[in-house]
Each structure stands twice: as structure tokens, then as C-alpha cells.
Design a protein around this nucleic acid. Structure first.
Length: 716
DNA sequence: CGTGGGCGGATTTTT
DNA sequence: TCCGCCCACG
């Protein structure tokens, strides 16, 4: 078997990792060092050189995008479909397991997945039916309590209230939430993982079967795993298994959602004989950018240790711009983007990265008036839109009448005369009977107004009718039938013009999505597969992703991406590092890693900007430059100061004018040069005959000139 | 049952 | 400043 296509494109470190013996392996893979390449080539190597069956491979990632990319690359590498490999997200694989073994997992066969929003609504309802004060038992916080415990594999029975009444109440809510989920046949994201873990833990024979079968376990972005994910992997691999995990402690930026980067160290303890590989050669950025990023991240303590390097060019220095305010910041960026475009650059090569979403607004406004097409990442995705979730709720009920969350969502949508009173009566019935809302609605009783009872009856008949009539039809016809007979389309069409229009379009798009849907596993009825798909893969944020646009996103969503030209904006104390993360060392270090992630996105040019004054939540405030700026080796940074007004220098000793300055040559002054045109003085060094100035010319870029020969003409 | 105004809160996010 | 949520009113 010819393995050269697998090994030839690799450097020595990558090849060592890919061809490592069948033992536990930890690959510390720096940004841009070919992490995905190592994973995919390792899989190909296992199959071709180690003669592993494709059925014996399980590779897990965090996002559907990463999973899809990995699958595609393996297929390209092997030249065959990789359908038989278990490649997916933790949640996707857990879901697959639970569908296969719903009985052993003690789940309803037709269980449905709730996304976080569904979960929050569900908890809110629960808090209300429990007659608790919503301001004291904030649904969001209850949700957090439940999810963190699930992520740590803790069920309510294992929790101690510690004689704290508040905690006791939370535990009680957790317990009743579990009961409500079980009744309704609902499973939230954390539950998928925990349930899959318990499935193996509590069924030794099943576990033994999977251990025999899935001999090769691989994990991507290992620093992002939480406790339950690692526990699940460990359970599968077993103490003498050979898991292959890839991660980068310097890119751990998800502690706030439960990720436990210490799992990297824990892995080395759990697998004492684990082989360690470091990928430090970077193929993305210039040496200058890497040195700057290395310099920054060196300020973090307790790293596993890694230093990126490149064989590539040194490249341009980082550019730092101290803006007067956030508008000035946006205008500066716009100006530089214009230059980039004028030199033949593409818009999609440019990324604007910021700490928080709110920062996008000023850029958007500026780009709008400057007519620069842009795309903002984040925001609601297709399957998260309200109208889509409404339609899905109908489909969920058709698939599973017990789905209380779906029932509540649409029993009165479009309005059919089922008010809060009637719903409350139904909930009461369900509660006293220990059943579902659907069962409660079907039961006889005189606690409902006749009109409401008739409306509910009509609603149920509608669901039954559509379920009967379309059960055998193709999925998209089923969806279409639901939209039409439910009256949802009509309802949104009557809504205030613009928004309603978009919603109707989205609903129509849902039919297309259903038409184009190809279920991965044929075991599941198409409708249920589609619903699971909608919950597990929320879809793209914007349809026209491939128009040539400037890319705007938070630092978090930039992870894994790369751009020739990057603007890292809003580098101010309080904003980045964020106020709420600058208190303790742990979170400050996470912020620093976030900055590191941002910097290492840049391939060729990296701009850093901050605003001396920023309007935030309606109030203007004066900020200090971010401490991260001072942690980047100053000799790699060049300050851009096109403004006449010059403010305090960033770091003592840098950008400092020596006095006495030659006449007319002042920091920040505008000057004209016979050959280079107009520019601004950025830096002055030396004096008298030795004086040199650094001038940023509008056309020619930045140049150092001897004042003596430059013949600079001062402009007002 | 829909809407408008008052109120509070305002990192980061994938599944 | 702005957005989302809740409640009261028509």
C-alpha cells in the first residue's frame, strides 16, 4: 500500500505524530500548525498502514463544520466515501448512540432534542407551575445550575443541599425538570452527553461491544472538552486504549462554558505512557506576527510550553492605531481597507475582530456609508429563527404528541382562542394526572371555557389530521402541509409588512431545506431525523456567505479561521480584557489567550487599534490602552498616527521625541515630501544632523528619513 | 389578543 | 444607547 500521499505533505513533527505507534498520543498543536491535517492524515494512516477498519474509527470535534471538514479531507485523502467512520460532534455522536440504544438509555423511542432556547422556555414554564417567584428563581440561572451539574455528571440525587434552602430549591427544580423532560420525551444538549455516558457506564456489555469495535478514538480541540466529554472518551478508550487527542492550551477560550483545558494535563496523568508531540511550525503568519503572539502569550503562567516559528518571511511590523474614539477607529479601518482594495486585495481577505458583538455597530454604520460590503458573523441562525421554531414545533408534535414544549409553543399560534387561563387549566390537569399536556387536553373536564375547549379540540384534530394525511408523504410535502393547514403562513403574512415578509420567506425556505435533506442514518423516520438535524445543526447565519465581503466577527468566532489582513479592534482596558474578566488571574489569562487567538488569525498584516474615548451603553468614557498592547514586544509594533493631536505615549520610552526637535518636525505634524507626498510624522529620533523621522505617507507607506536631507515642508 | 411603553440589563458560544 | 421582556390597556 502506497502511503506517500499520506506522509509526503507532512513536516517531520507532523509525520512523527501521524505515524506514532498505537499508544495514547497527545499532540500539542499551535495555531496554524496543521492540526486538522495531522488528525485526518492519522486516520488515513490507521486505515492504510495499520489496516484499521473504517468501522473502528471514532473522531470527535466540537462543531459540525469541523466534523464536515474532517470527513471531506479524509475522503479526499483516501479517495473513498468516509461514511462508515464515526466522525461527528460530541453531541451528534451521543445522539446517534442514544437513538440506537434508546431502550437501554431509558429514553422514549421518539425522544426529541431541545436546544438551549427551548430548554430555557421549558424551565421558565416549570418555575411558574411550581409557583415560584421568577425574580428569585431566574430561569437562566436555573438553567445554568442544571447544565453545569449535568456537565459534571451529577444527577439531582447526588447533590447535597448543604442545608442551604436556596440550593435545596434548585435541586428540587432540577429534579422536577428531569421528570418533566421524561414525560415529554425531551432531551437537552447536556443530557445527550450525560445520557450517552451513563449508557456505557451502566451497561458493561454494551460498553465492551463498543470498545471492541471503536478501537481508534481521536479528538480534536481537546482543550475545549468539558468533564463529561472527557469522561465519555475515557470510558470508550478504556485504561489501556490508545486515544489520539489534539489540542492547544494556548487557544483555550471556552472556560466560561465549561471547557476544562486542564484535561490536557489530566490526559497525561491518566495515560502516563502517552506520547507527546509538539507542532510548532506555523504555515500561516509572518515571523513578526508569530513573534508578537509568542511575546504576548509568554505572559501566561502554567503553559504546557510551545513556541511558534515559521520558515516564511519576516513580514511587516504590526501596526498600532490609537483612535480618538470608536468612530475614528472605524474610519481608520475603513481607510486601510480601501487601500487594501486599491492594491487589488479582496474584501473577504479582511477580518475585523472584536471582543464583543456590540462593537460591530459602529463598523457597520461606517461601512454602510462608505459602501463597503461586509458580513457580520453570529446572530440567529436559520433553525433558531422564531418562525422556523414555530413550524418545527408543529412537526415535533406530529412526531411526538407528548412534547409539552412544542405543545405550549403552538397551541395558540396562530391565535385560536387558547389563552393563559385555558393553558393554566391544562397544566394543572397534567400536573395532577402526572401526564402530558396532550393527554390533559384529551381528557374530559369542565375547567375549560367551552370556546377554549373547542379551540383546543380543533388544534388536536389538526395535528392528528396532518399526521394521518401526510405520514406517508415525502418530508417536504409534510412540512408544506403543516405550514398551510396550521395557518402559520397566513398568520405571518398578515404581520407588519417587512418582518412578516421575511418570515414567510424563511418558512418557504424550510420546505426547501426539507426537500434537500438527506438523513445520515436511515434507521430513523425522516421527520425525526430532520428534527434532530434542526436541533443539532442550527445552520448558517446568512445565506449569501460567499459574496466578497469584509468579515466581521468576535474573537471567539474567529478561532480556526485565517485572513491575510486582520484588524484587532477595541484594545482597551475594560473592553479587552473585559471588565468582568480582568479580576482574577484565571479569566485574565483566558482573555490573553483570546488575544493570542486573534493575533494568530493574521497571515500577512495585523492592525491593532484602540479608542481613547468610547461610547458604551450610552455613556462616553475614557479608556486606557489594553495591557496586552504592552505585552507585545514593542520593536515589532509600529504606531500609526495620522491625527495631528497626539496623546500620551503608549509605553514609556517608545515613540518619544528627543528634544530639542528640529524646527517644524514634531510628532504628529503633517509634512510634505518632494517625492513621497503628504504624510504624518510618527516618530522622531536623534537630533541635529543625526535626526531621523518616521513619516507615514498617504501613498507610499511609512518611511524613515534623515531630516537633514529630506527637505520636509511643514503643513499647517 | 395584540401592542406600546416602561424597566432592567448589556462578554464571549456551540451543541 | 439599545434591546428584549413584561404588563397593562384597548
Amino acid at each position: 500500500m502506497d502511503v506517500s500521499p499520506i506522509l509526503d505533505p507532512l513536516n517531520d513533527a507532523q509525520r512523527a505524530a501521524v505515524t506514532a505507534p498505537l499508544a495514547p498520543v497527545l499532540v500539542l498543536a499551535g495555531a496554524g500548525s496543521g492540526k486538522t491535517r495531522v488528525l485526518t492524515h492519522r486516520i488515513a494512516w490507521l486505515i492504510q498502514a495499520e489496516r484499521a477498519s473504517p468501522h473502528s474509527i471514532l473522531a470527535v470535534t466540537f462543531t459540525n463544520k469541523a466534523a464536515g471538514e474532517m470527513r471531506a479531507r479524509i475522503e479526499r485523502l483516501l479517495g473513498v466515501p468516509a461514511a462508515s467512520l464515526w466522525i461527528g460532534t460530541f453531541h451528534g455522536l451521543a445522539h446517534r448512540l442514544l437513538r440506537l440504544h434508546w431502550r437501554e438509555a431509558r429514553l422514549a423511542q421518539s425522544f426529541q432534542i431541545m436546544d438551549s432556547e427551548d430548554q430555557q422556555r421549558f424551565i421558565k414554564k416549570l418555575v411558574r407551575t411550581s409557583e415560584l417567584d421568577e425574580t428569585r428563581w431566574v430561569p437562566r440561572e436555573v438553567q445554568w445550575f442544571i447544565n453545569t451539574n449535568k456537565d459534571a455528571a451529577r444527577r439531582p440525587q447526588q447533590l447535597k443541599d448543604g442545608n442551604d434552602p436556596a440550593r435545596r430549591q434548585l435541586i428540587a427544580l432540577y429534579r422536577s425538570y428531569e421528570e418533566a423532560c421524561a414525560r415529554a420525551g425531551l432531551v437537552d444538549f447536556a443530557e445527550l452527553l450525560l445520557r450517552a455516558f451513563e449508557l456505557w457506564r451502566d451497561n458493561p456489555e454494551l460498553l465492551a461491544h463498543y470498545r471492541r469495535r471503536l478501537r481508534h478514538v481521536l479528538a480534536d480541540e481537546f482543550q475545549d472538552t468539558n468533564a463529561i466529554q472527557y469522561a465519555w472518551l475515557k470510558l470508550l478508550a478504556g485504561a489501556d486504549g490508545a486515544p489520539f487527542v489534539v489540542g492547544d492550551d494556548d487557544q483555550a477560550i471556552y472556560a466560561f462554558r465549561g471547557a476544562c483545558a486542564e484535561n490536557l494535563q489530566q490526559f497525561r496523568r491518566d495515560y502516563g505512557q502517552a506520547l507527546l508531540f509538539r507542532l510548532e511550525q506555523n504555515y500561516r503568519s509572518t515571523a513578526t506576527i508569530l513573534e508578537a503572539a509568542n511575546g504576548l502569550i509568554a505572559h501566561n503562567a502554567g503553559r504546557l510550553g510551545k513556541r511558534l516559528w515559521t520558515q516564511g518571511a519576516r513580514g511587516a511590523p504590526l501596526r498600532l492605531y490609537a483612535a480618538y474614539n470608536e468612530r475614528d477607529e472605524a474610519e481608520f479601518v475603513t481607510h486601510r481597507i480601501r487601500e487594501h482594495l486599491a492594491h487589488g486585495g479582496l474584501r473577504r481577505e479582511v477580518a475585523i475582530l472584536y471582543r464583543s458583538n456590540a462593537q460591530s455597530r459602529v463598523f457597520e454604520e461606517t461601512f454602510l456609508s462608505a459602501r463597503v460590503p461586509y458580513r457580520v458573523y453570529g446572530g440567529l441562525r436559520f433553525f433558531e429563527r422564531a418562525e422556523i421554531k414555530d413550524a418545527l414545533a408543529y412537526l415535533r408534535l406530529i412526531a411526538n404528541r407528548r412534547d409539552d414544549a412544542a405543545f405550549e409553543r403552538v397551541v395558540n399560534l396562530p391565535p385560536r382562542g387558547v389563552g393563559a387561563k385555558s393553558l393554566e387549566a391544562l397544566r394543572e390537569r397534567a400536573r395532577s394526572a402526572g401526564g402530558t399536556l396532550w393527554e390533559a387536553a384529551a381528557a374530559p373536564g369542565d375547567d375549560l371555557a367551552p370556546k377554549a375547549a373547542a379551540a383546543i379540540g380543533g388544534f388536536m384534530a389538526l395535528i392528528e389530521r396532518v399526521a394521518q394525511a401526510t405520514g406517508a408523504l415525502p418530508l417536504h410535502e409534510q412540512v408544506d402541509a403543516v405550514l398551510k393547514s396550521s395557518g402559520l403562513i397566513e398568520h405571518f403574512r398578515r404581520e407588519k409588512v417587512e418582518r412578516g415578509e421575511a418570515r414567510v420567506e424563511n418558512l418557504e425556505e424550510l420546505v426547501s431545506a426539507a426537500r434537500g435533506f438527506a438523513p445520515e442514518d436511515a434507521e430513523l423516520p425522516p421527520l425525526e431525523a430532520f428534527l434532530a438535524h434542526a436541533a443539532l445543526e442550527a445552520g448558517e447565519g446568512q445565506a449569501d456567505a460567499w459574496e466578497d465581503c469584509v468579515q466581521m466577527m468576535t474573537l471567539h468566532s474567529a478561532k480556526g479561521l485565517e485572513f491575510p489582513l486582520v484588524f484587532l479592534c477595541g484594545l482597551e482596558e475594560g473592553l479587552f480584557p473585559h471588565q468582568r474578566s480582568s479580576g482574577d488571574l484565571e479569566s485574565l489569562e483566558e482573555e490573553r489567550r483570546l488575544c493570542y487567538v486573534g493575533m494568530t488569525r493574521a497571515m500577512r498584516d495585523l492592525y491593532l487599534t484602540y479608542a481613547e474615548q468610547r461610547r458604551l451603553h450610552g455613556v462616553d468614557s475614557y479608556g486606557q490602552a489594553s495591557r496586552f498592547l504592552k505585552e507585545i514586544p514593542p520593536e515589532l509594533v509600529e504606531e500609526v498616527r495620522p491625527r495631528v493631536q497626539v496623546s500620551r505615549p503608549l509605553a514609556a520610552g517608545r515613540f518619544r521625541a528627543e528634544e530639542p526637535a528640529p524646527p517644524g518636525v514634531r510628532l504628529g505634524a503633517r509634512v510634505r515630501h518632494g517625492k513621497f507626498g503628504e504624510g504624518v510624522i510618527l516618530n522622531v529620533e536623534g537630533n541635529g544632523a543625526q535626526a531621523r523621522v518616521q513619516v507615514s505617507f498617504e501613498r507610499q507607506g511609512t518611511k524613515w528619513l534623515m531630516v537633514q536631507y529630506a527637505n520636509l515642508e511643514p503643513l499647517t
